[in-house]
């Protein structure tokens, strides 16, 4: 027990301890709830202390810290994703139950999976497909390299012959446009997001441009 703890002195568990306060602060800002932040740090603790001798025992501190923040950020995202899915299912179920109009009944053909799930997933794919096609070429190409070819931003800059910040801008624009398209079709109405969609919903969306 002692030796294991000692072996992890420069590892993730030690780093987690060291940066606990910063991580909690980040997570609280990120999920808006100190309790959930605590929860996630606990989850991280289980993860990092489970992997004996952690994966980056001799990495520089700064990278280990970034690794932990990324891990925290991903855990928050996993939760948001799960919440969105289950709320979406619930909503679709309620609509179907209450005789409300569910989406695209003609798509409801495959009996293998819950129909509502299939519909929303197909819709999502379609919306994304259209939104990608409508992107300016630079942003579209950068996005394709980033997410479909899995290139790093530096590599994309080289391939496209533009600066790093140019790549960043292309990707940010792409993400923003895709988000707009998804919001436009109500993909986040049931999301975990704290009413952002509703708040901006009343205003004209000037960049939607389609």
């Amino acid at each position: 027990m002692e030796s294991e703890e000692y072996g992890d002195a420069n590892g993730l568990a030690g780093l987690l301890d060291m940066h606990r306060a910063d991580l909690l602060r980040f997570l609280t800002a990120r999920c808006g709830s100190p309790d959930e932040a605590e929860d996630i740090v606990q989850e991280m603790w289980i993860k990092v202390s489970g992997q004996a001798g952690g994966p980056i025992t001799n990495g520089p501190i700064a990278n280990g810290r970034a690794y932990l923040f990324r891990m925290a950020n991903n855990l928050v995202l996993d939760r948001a994703r799960g919440r969105r899915r289950s709320m979406q299912r619930e909503r679709n179920w309620l609509e179907a139950e209450g005789g409300g109009v569910a989406h695209m009944p003609e798509d409801r053909t495959d009996p293998g999976e819950p129909a509502d799930e299939i519909i929303s997933r197909e819709q999502e794919a379609q919306v994304l497909r259209d939104a990608i096609a409508a992107l300016p070429e630079g942003a579209q190409r950068a996005l394709r390299l980033y997410r479909f070819e899995e290139m790093g931003q530096k590599e994309i800059a080289e391939v496209m012959g533009i600066s790093r910040s140019g790549v960043e801008k292309h990707l940010a624009l792409a993400m923003k446009r895709l988000r707009e398209a998804l919001v436009g079709c109500g993909a986040f109405d049931a999301a975990a997001s704290m009413g952002y969609g509703e708040r901006s919903g009343g205003k004209p969306r000037m960049e939607q441009g389609q």
Binding site: R30, G32, A125, R129, R147, M175, L178, A187, S193
Partner: peptide, 21 residues
């Protein structure tokens, strides 16, 4: 945080649907 969630969820969906797109 809400805006960030939506952007990150968008990217998540993009990756989920990668094969289709």
């Amino acid at each position: 945080a809400a805006a960030y969630d939506e952007v990150a969820l968008t990217d998540g969906l993009l990756q989920e649907h990668r094969a289709d797109l």
